[in-house]
């Protein structure tokens, strides 16, 4: 049995449309029918641009937001069916690290008590001595000198605060850690430190990780399997090497080319520049949601949404033309400015 199995998950958030006489409610389809599975100890990367629903997906897995339909099976148990008390008990197994470390820490709590708080909540029988010891060990594991335990978050840099947040998530030895853009708010030199730390913790703890980021090199470095999202849907999911060497969805290709181009010294490789913007999830396009920006879109794409096809073991793509795009070099479209 997989550790986590998400089945056809939908999160449609109500948005009030005010009107003088007849206000109505529209629905923002943040997560629109997502299925995937995660095995124990595995690291899954989720990439996509802002508004694609990757953060909402995380929150739905963690039961921090209500879901509209679908299942979130945790070791076979459907989390949305649990009562509040039952879910609260489960939380020691699922932990989350947020993007902005300074916002996710209580400014009035010393970092020692912040890291120890999960223990006070979930292991009330633990005596103070062993709790203190656990906190010190955890601080060492995340690279914080234990003598700093009595300081407050404002005395720390962003990178150090993120270490505190990670320590707090890891101290209960969870089975799953969901990291939502854990390094985006940090400086380059600090980013590398935190990515190394997460990688080390993941190896040593054996916990499964979901690593959400728009930073492809970081996702490639951290994860063994990667899922690409666009407008609330999965467009491609594959193992790391398969996705980076053999991307099939036009959107994945554009994302990869945007990064490859800017990171390498040679500028000869033409970049795929997508036209237009990500459409609004309030009013997603008909058919394939990507058709408005896709260089290969046809009438078929405008009418019918492609299903997620398994094209080889573990590699799924949602594109009508994945097979035709296989041999072809990525189509190059360059904006023509000035």
């Amino acid at each position: 049995m997989p550790l986590l199995e998400v089945e056809n998950l939908r999160v449609h958030l109500p948005v009030r449309q005010p009107h003088l006489f007849r206000s109505s409610t529209a629905y923002l389809r943040a997560v629109d029918g997502i299925s995937f599975r995660l095995d124990a100890g595995e690291t899954l990367g989720i990439v996509g641009e802002s508004g694609c629903g990757k953060s909402t997906l995380c929150r739905a897995i963690m039961q921090l937001t209500g879901i509209s339909s679908g299942k979130v099976l945790w070791s076979g148990e459907n989390l949305p069916d649990l009562s509040q008390q039952e879910m609260d008990r489960k939380r020691s197994e699922l932990q989350m690290v947020f993007q902005d470390p300074t916002a996710s820490l209580n400014p009035r709590m010393t970092i020692g008590s912040a890291i120890g708080e999960p223990l006070t909540v979930f292991r009330p029988d633990m005596d103070q001595g062993s709790r203190l010891q656990a906190v010190q060990e955890m601080m060492q594991a995340v690279g914080l000198p234990p003598e700093l335990a009595n300081r407050y978050p404002h005395q720390f840099s962003g990178g150090q605060c993120q270490r505190v947040a990670i320590a707090r998530a890891m101290i209960l030895k969870p089975k799953l850690v969901v990291c939502d853009e854990p390094v985006s708010a940090l400086d380059v030199s600090t980013q590398a430190q935190i990515v190394n730390l997460l990688k080390k913790l993941q190896k040593n703890s054996g916990a499964a990780f979901i690593f959400v980021s728009h930073d492809l090199p970081a996702v490639r470095y951290m994860c063994t399997r990667i899922m690409v999202m666009y407008l609330g849907k999965v467009v491609e999911i594959a193992t790391r090497d398969e996705l980076f060497e053999n991307p099939r969805h036009p959107y994945t290709r554009a994302l990869l080319s945007a990064v490859r181009h800017s990171r390498q010294a040679g500028r000869e490789e033409a970049r795929i520049v997508l036209a237009g913007e990500v459409p609004s999830p309030m009013d997603p396009p008909s058919g394939c949601a990507f058709h408005t920006r896709c260089p290969h879109a046809s009438q078929w794409c405008r009418k019918e949404a492609p299903l997620l096809d398994e094209i080889s073991v573990g590699h799924q793509v949602a594109c009508h033309y994945w097979n035709d795009l296989a041999a072809e070099e990525p189509a190059v479209r360059t904006a023509s400015p000035v």
């Binding site: 641009e49 802002s50 728009h214 492809l216 554009a254 994302l255 080319s257 945007a258 990064v259 181009h261 800017s262 970049r271 795929i272 520049v273 997508l274 913007e277 990500v278 920006r293 904006a335």
Partner: peptide
């Protein structure tokens, strides 16, 4: 900006 918009 997002990766694809950044490219633009």
């Amino acid at each position: 900006l997002d990766a694809t918009i950044q490219a633009q």
